[in-house]
Design a protein around this nucleic acid. Structure first.
Length: 836
RNA sequence: GCCGGGAUGGCGGAACGGUAGACGCUAGGGACUUAAAAUCCCUUGUCCGUAAGGGCGUGCGGGUUCGAGUCCCGCUCUCGGCACCA
């Protein structure tokens, strides 16, 4: 047959949308809601991380994880599971609010516009989501339950108002949580953050620190993500040590992980914000201390971090008394000690702590060694000669016995700053009373909906935007007659994404966040795929809420996400000239491996994160327009292992597109459109290859090794092409195998071949083990570990026979060079290695 | 600085301790075509050689093993994360 591309060639644009409509109309991916039906099959819950529908739409990085979960979802359905595979929108948040400000449109309208665009783009890929379960955090029917969960937190005393130093971001006009700030800037935008004291809502995540840490062991997560969480929680064992202060009544508590080095403490340091500073500073030092504190306060967090290279501090004039020997040691103030950790005060042991050492050298403070090179205590009285661990135990006993301190556990984790001074978020179901107290609204008052306001910015007096709402919204009369004003802060964006995986299970329930029996059937999430950027933020917050809900009896599992998998970022090639100016892919040409602008100027090429400023963003719409959704899906997965960072290459899309064309030609005559089906049986070798392919695709899909699964299907199609026309039995099996990966072409060819029903609704093909094995095998002959020959032999030859064959092989004889074999290693079915 | 990944052809990547480079791309050659596109076939790690064949090859240096991309020790580079947390 002449391989010509005819008029009836593979044209995905002619049928992809059609099949998407058919799936939707027939409810092919709708998951039953009725428990009796559900319980007839095992369940599988495969979840994508909740996308934020941004104004710029999707780029090709987004659908990587979505394609992976979709293949798994379709695969599991075909394996006989009820599959939960939903999609929705984490749609509260700043960008929509800023766009609203710019365009003077309500953020809800911006949000709807963005969601519509995201949904359209996602739907074009033919994912098997159950769209009847779509949720958006911004819907009243959704955030009603976010508020309800907040009430649970409030009831359990896990939500409280506190005057705390917060991360205030002037550019955003709001506070941020610790997790959102790094090096003094907001991690998302790089806007600087400063420290302020404000009265804010906090969630007591620290009360769950131990469980959040321990239960990580139950999870099938990447070890790196668990490590990041462990580090964030930052549990450390140590002791509080109480220092008396010369000439002052109060005492100074310090936290140390090295109580064993107490005899080496030569000074103490307080954080500049420490309340004792003002009390203990002597008159002689007061001015110097106040000056230092003023300087520190004026430094931004960023400057504090930058200046970390050199330490600074000032002497308070006061002396602490070392509890073990009453030695007076000076108390300093320095900003290398943080108020937010431990007690905000330390005992400095410059001999065994790098930071203290640097400080001591800078200010000429004494350094006393108390642990020798072998790790034994010295100059430490009753601790002398002990190892560090023994000494720790002994000194803690001593401190506790003498009431001079106690052994403690300290966490790095701090409570979660939970309020934001923005409009586009969930209002708190809280009323502030005249007397300064606050009360939670009853459940019947939910939802507290967002009122219309005239502008999405703070008031003249610096109050949050919600303070602009009229009295009708702001003023509340409680059932008992008391009057108050509504809380005008809103919840952070993380709130809605903390529990969305539960709402998908029962999205239209008006009586509960999720029905108990459905929750029990579906939870936990079996596979959760998303980017590593949420390793701490979302995944820690979400686990915390889940545990609270567990304690409330709302959920039945200790952890929400059993298996987590991080997809690697997709990069794209960018082109930059010597001056650093970027060029788009259309503006450059390749010549002998080097790249030039059309004007002939050389440009350097590198693969970088996609961004508008680098002119290297690839839009899935463009890819689908040219190659279709199936090619897009296949390429997303064929590029390489899912968890690896890898660059997008348009030529690679052409490769999988050509593969799909070959699949097409297995069934359709491109010139006439006729269906090409042969009579009789397939050649036995092709049949065997098919079974091996089923096996490999099945195994690789289970292990999320999609790239090698696709590669195996390519091998099959390359071979099958040589044997057209293929019998129906072969096509039947192969199309069902291909369907999870390239569902549109599978459906189209399935239908053209006149098979019953929808291809995506069929059972997965099964392989026969005996069919996966060859009758003959190739045995490799090695001489001294080097491959010298091979031989095709029957299966099942024993070691002696294989050894005989190897020793009589002419090439082997040649390489033995007449030397007698010293040793022969025979690996049946594989090789023979002759050592001489 | 600390904690994790990673390093294999021109490129993306394959390889239960057992034939390194599957599959795809790119490039070159050929077929088809008036021509081009598309498609199909062949070649494509590198060096020597007309060939047959052979040498060398998985970031670097050692080691274990009959045999190492794979395991161990010590480095280099690179990408993430954390970073005055006492």
């Amino acid at each position: 047959m002449k391989p010509v591309q005819g008029p009836m060639r593979y044209q995905p644009e002619q049928f992809e949308a059609h099949w998407q409509n058919v799936w939707e109309e027939k409810g092919a991916f709708r998951t039953p809601q009725d428990l009796a039906t559900l319980q007839k099959k095992p369940k599988y819950y495969v979840l994508d991380m909740f996308p934020y529908p941004s104004g710029s739409g999707l780029h090709v990085g987004h659908p990587e994880g979505y394609t992976a979960t979709d293949v798994v979802a379709r695969h599991k359905r075909a394996q006989g599971f009820h599959v939960m595979h939903p999609m929705g929108w984490d749609a509260f948040g700043l960008p929509a609010e800023r766009a609203a400000e710019r365009e003077n449109i309500h953020p809800a309208i911006i949000t709807k516009r963005n969601i519509d665009n995201f949904r359209r783009q996602i739907k074009r890929l033919g994912f098997s989501y159950d769209w009847q379960r779509e949720v958006s955090t911004t819907d009243e029917t959704y955030y009603r339950w976010t508020q309800w969960i907040f009430l649970k937190l409030y009831e359990k005393d896990l939500a409280y108002l506190a005057e705390v130093p917060v991360n205030w971001c002037p550019a955003l006009g709001t506070v941020l949580s610790n997790e959102e700030v790094k090096d003094g800037v907001y991690v998302e935008t790089g806007d600087p953050v400063e420290r302020r004291n404000m009265r804010q809502w906090m969630l007591k995540i620290t009360a769950y620190a131990e469980r959040l840490l321990d239960d990580l062991d139950l999870l099938d997560w990447p070890e790196s993500v668990k490590d990041m969480q462990r580090h964030w929680i930052g549990k450390s064992h140590g002791a509080h040590v109480y220092f008396a202060i010369a000439g002052y009544q109060g005492r100074l508590d310090v936290f140390t992980t090295r109580p064993d080095t107490l005899f080496g403490a030569t000074y103490c340091v307080l954080a500049p914000e420490h309340p004792l500073v003002q009390n203990i500073t002597t008159e002689a030092q007061r001015e110097a201390v106040n000056t230092y504190i003023r300087e520190t306060n004026s430094k931004s967090d960023l400057a504090r971090t930058d200046l970390a290279k050199s330490k600074s501090g000032v002497f308070t004039g006061a002396y602490a008394l070392n509890p073990v020997n009453d030695t007076p040691i000076p108390i300093w103030v320095a900003d290398y000690v943080l108020m937010g950790y431990g007690t905000g005060a330390i005992m400095a042991v410059p001999s065994h702590d790098e930071r203290d050492n640097e400080f001591a050298k800078q200010y000429d403070l004494p350094i006393v060694r108390v642990v020798d090179d072998l790790g034994f205590l010295e100059h430490s009285d009753f601790l002398d000669g002990l190892g560090v661990e023994e000494a720790k135990i002994k000194i803690i006993e001593w401190l506790e016995f003498n009431k001079q301190g106690k052994g403690t556990v300290q966490y790095r984790l701090r409570d979660w700053l939970f309020s934001r001074q923005r409009y586009w978020g969930e209002p708190f179901p809280i009323v502030l009373l005249d007397d300064g107290t606050h009360v939670a609204l009853p459940e019947s008052a939910l939802p507290v909906t967002l009122p219309p306001i005239d502008a999405y910015k703070p008031t003249e007096t610096g109050e949050p935007p919600l303070a602009r709402a009229g009295d009708a919204w702001l003023m509340v009369e409680l059932p008992d007659g008391r009057r108050g004003i509504r809380e005008t802060n809103t919840m952070p964006q993380w709130a809605g994404s903390c529990w969305y995986y539960l709402r998908y299970l029962d999205p239209h329930n008006t009586k509960a966040a999720v029905a108990r029996d459905l929750e029990q059937y579906w939870m936990p999430v079996d596979l959760y795929i998303g980017g590593v950027e949420h390793a701490v933020l979302h995944l820690l917050y979400s686990r915390f809420w889940h545990k609270v809900l567990f304690d409330c009896g709302v959920v039945s599992t200790r952890e929400p996400f059993q298996k987590l998998f991080n997809q690697g970022m997709i990069l794209a090639y960018s082109y930059r000239d010597a001056r650093g100016k970027y060029y788009g892919p259309d503006e450059v040409i390749e010549k002998d491996g080097l790249w030039f602008t059309h004007a002939g100027e050389p440009v350097a090429t590198q693969s970088e994160k996609m961004s508008k400023s680098k002119l290297n963003v690839v839009n899935p719409d463009d890819v689908i327009d040219r190659y279709g959704a199936d090619a897009m899906r296949l390429y997303e997965l064929f590029m390489g292992p899912l968890d690896q960072v890898k660059p997008w290459q348009m030529t690679g899309v052409e490769g999988v597109y050509r593969f799909l064309q070959r699949v097409w030609r297995l069934v359709v005559n491109e010139l006439t459109g006729e269906i090409v089906v042969g009579a009789g049986l397939a050649p036995p070798l092709l049949e065997k290859l098919l079974h091996r392919t089923i096996k490999k695709v099945h195994e690789d899909t289970e292990l999320l090794r999609f790239n090698t699964a696709i590669s195996q299907m390519m091998i099959f199609v390359n071979e099958a092409t040589a044997h057209t026309p293929l019998p129906r039995s072969i096509l039947d099996v192969f199309l069902r195998l291909l369907s999870p990966y390239a569902p549109h072409i599978a459906e189209e060819l399935w239908s053209r071949l006149g098979f019953e029903g929808l291809c995506c609704a069929q059972d997965a093909p099964k392989f026969i083990t005996s069919m996966c094995e060859d009758d003959t095998i190739t045995i490799v002959f090695q001489v001294n570990g080097k491959r010298r020959a091979d031989l095709v032999v029957e299966k099942g030859l024993d070691k002696a026979a294989l050894e005989q064959l190897a020793l009589s092989d002419p090439k082997v004889i040649k390489h033995l060079e007449g030397k007698p074999p010293k040793r022969v290693i025979v690996v049946p079915g594989k090789l023979v290695n002759i050592v001489c």
